[in-house]
Design a protein around this nucleic acid. Structure first.
Lengths: 133, 133
DNA sequence: CATGATACACACTTCAGGGTAAGTACTTGT
DNA sequence: ACAAGTACTTACCCTGAAGTGTGTATCATG
C-alpha cells in the first residue's frame, strides 16, 4: 500500500467521511476499478490466483495482487497457500465478504433499472468514455 | 467537469468496467468523497444550495456545485431555480435518486455490522487515517 | 541446461479527482 | 457608497490511485 502523507486535506476529508458516512466506509473497501470485479468472480466460488488473472484479462498482476492484499487486510477474502512447487494459492471470501452479496445485488438492481429508465443519460455517459461512438 | 484525455488506459479500463460491472456503474454515480454525503442530506428532504453548504461545512463551494451538477446530469437530483433576486435555488432528489435509498441503506447496514465484527480491522483502518491515535 | 509455470515484488510514470483562492452579477439594507 | 447575501465560475496546484515494465525463487520437464 502506498504511503500516505500526514499533511493533506484530502486525507483529512477522507477520514471524516469515513467516520461519519457508512457509505464511504463501504466504498473504501469495495471501491476502485477492480475490487468489485474481483469480488464478483469470488462470489461464484473460490479461485486460484492464476484463475483470477485469466478471468480478468485486462487487469495487470500488480493491480490484482494489490487489491487482493487489500481485500485480505480488510477481512473480505482469505488467502490459502499450499506449500508446494510450483506455488498453489487460492482466494476465498470470508463471512464478511459473503455478507456483501446483498449489497452488491442491490447496487446491480439499481444500475439496471437506472440504465433503462435513463437510457439517454446512459448514452451520454457512454460517449464520455473514449472509444465509443 | 474536467477534461478527459482520449489516450488513457485508465479511461479504457473505466469504460469496460462501466460496461461490464453494474457495481462500477453505481459507484461512478455516487462515488467520490462528497456525493454520498450530499445524497444523504437530500434524502431527508429538498434543500437550498446555501442550506447544503451549511449542512456540510467542510465542503468547498467548488466541490458542492461540481457534484450537484454531476448528480443533476446523471438524473439523480433536480435543480429548481426561482427567478428572484437574490437567487433562490433548491435541489431535490429525482425518482432515480430516491430509488437509491435501499442501496445506501444496504451499504450502511453492512458497514455497521462489519465494523462491529471486525473491530480490529476497523481500528487498523482508523490508524491509517492521519490525526488518529 | 534452459525453458516454462506459479505467485508475487519493486521502481518509475501518468493523470484525473480534489483542494485553494479569487472573482462575478444583481439587489437590498444602513 | 458600500457591505452583505446568494449562487455560482474560473485558473492554478497537488496528491494518490492506477498503469508499465522488469526481476525473483523454486522445481519439473524436455
Amino acid at each position: 500500500m502506498t504511503k500516505i502523507k500526514e499533511t493533506s486535506t484530502i486525507q483529512a476529508n477522507k477520514q471524516s467521511a469515513f467516520n461519519e458516512c457508512p457509505v464511504t466506509y463501504v466504498m473504501e473497501k469495495i471501491g476502485g476499478y477492480w475490487k468489485p470485479i474481483i469480488l464478483f468472480h469470488l462470489l461464484s466460488g473460490s479461485k486460484r490466483y492464476s484463475d483470477l488473472r485469466k478471468a480478468i484479462p485486462a487487469i495487470t498482476e500488480k493491480m490484482l495482487i494489490q487489491h487482493l492484499k487489500q481485500l485480505e487486510a480488510d477481512g473480505l477474502v482469505m488467502r490459502v497457500a499450499r506449500p508446494v512447487i510450483p506455488p498453489h494459492v487460492t482466494y476465498h471470501l470470508t463471512k464478511a465478504g459473503l455478507a456483501l452479496k446483498p449489497v452488491l445485488y442491490a447496487m446491480a438492481v439499481w444500475a439496471v433499472s437506472d440504465s433503462k429508465e435513463n437510457s439517454k443519460v446512459f448514452a451520454r455517459n457512454l460517449k464520455s468514455f473514449p472509444g465509443f461512438k
